[in-house]
Design a binder for these strands. Sequence first.
RNA 1: GGCCCCGUCGUCCAGAGGCCUAGGACGCUGCCCUCUCAAGGCAGAAACGCCGGUUCAAAUCCGGUCGGGGCUGCCA
Length: 438
Amino acid sequence: MKLRIAPSPTGSLHIGNARTALFNWLYAKANGGTFVVRIDDTDMERSTEEYKNNILENLRWLGLDWDEGVDVGGEHGDYKQSSRFERYRDIAQQLVENNFAYKDDGAIRFKVPENQTINFKDFVRGDMTFESSDVEDFVILRSDNSPTYHLASTVDDVDYGITIIARGEDILSSTPKHILIMEALGATLPKFCHLPLLFGSDGKKLSKRHGDTSVEAFRDKGILNDAMFNYLCLLGWSPGDDLEHFDREFAISKFDFNKVLPNSAIFDEKKLLWLNGQYIRSTSFEKFSNDALSQIGKDLNRELFNEETERLNIILPSVQERIETMNDLYDQVSFLLDEPFLVNDQEWESVNSIEAQKYLNIIRNKFIELDEFNLENIESLMRNVLEEEEIKTKVGFQSTRVAITGTKISPPLFESIFALGKETSIARLTESIEKLTN
RNA sequence: GGCCCCGUCGUCCAGAGGCCUAGGACGCUGCCCUCUCAAGGCAGAAACGCCGGUUCAAAUCCGGUCGGGGCUGCCA
């Protein structure tokens, strides 16, 4: 059993292609089949090396690997169609000689037989029937001697011994052409499986208009590869038992093309985001901390100082509980970094009051006298002052939050103060008192 | 227009004739928890496109209809 995906390097890896690749991979893994990745770059105008690399890199990022094909090799060369033009020309010539095709204005067209019924079985859609009278004679070799997709793709599938062709439903109407070529070549027909398409929120084919459509874009947004893999699995398939959060091994153990739905699905970024949050929360703290520190370093575009890392590790457990993507990290923890600390006037105004000023003043003085600056002491100190001075929690804590973190939305307050440390906390409180009483 | 595919809550999925007064999840609303924001917990609104037929019985089978989508390139 051999399956393949054949992306065209005319753009960054598209979510729809990623899902198709993923389903092929799952089926191959589930059945001990061989998975091939080949590059369909017959469109010389639009194909680039950068896109090719991008596609391969993102497939790997998703956790997919392949047994044969571009980059990993195999018995069929480099698995790029641009290297096999001679082969396609020979086949085209052979088809002409055997009267299956003919020259037309410099191009070569396949001669579609009259009154022939083309049948094939589709894993997802069952028995399919097309009439050859509905298929026009189609070009297989362009007048510039380059092969079209129909020829190149079909020849490769035959040459490489592909036994199951699982691809997007957009190719369903072209399948009769491919079958006709295969028959003319005397090849054994593979099985077909046309997977449902992915649509944008307006129900139209997922395209740039819908915002991000490439795997890379979501990767850049801080989506975890495990979450992306999991979410893509859920589009058109489910393992049953209402299970939604699962890993690759589990998906492999349950996957089958027969259980893939025939109807198209709409890509819902909201659910992806939610799932990503679930993954972040279920990651071990050790791994999360590692990823988080490297992400923050990336956002900062510099190495983190040891002191920063120490401070971050204090707050990170709390942050892990409340972010949706790794890109949400920076805003949550930036107050702990050795970077300019600025609070805008609006934030100050929104928490300013006589009571607040009084509260900040008292806790600052008590912080100075506090010998053991730990979580427990900070909390009890702050709560006691609230009680003694009869100041409302919101007034005291929110003003302290702005003073310490710079905003009204932050990780838990006591952890934030503890992570920031005694000295800096006192300095920020002092600064805030000056600012507020001005 | 022609050919083809598809049709369960707004969205993703469960449902393969009686277990369905249709289940789960995202999102949404409310409540609880609470130092903000989240997370978490609980509750709620929300769907079988429509019309016929088959059957004792249909979301599930058949036909039609309507709706959506794909293809119809010397793009893939």
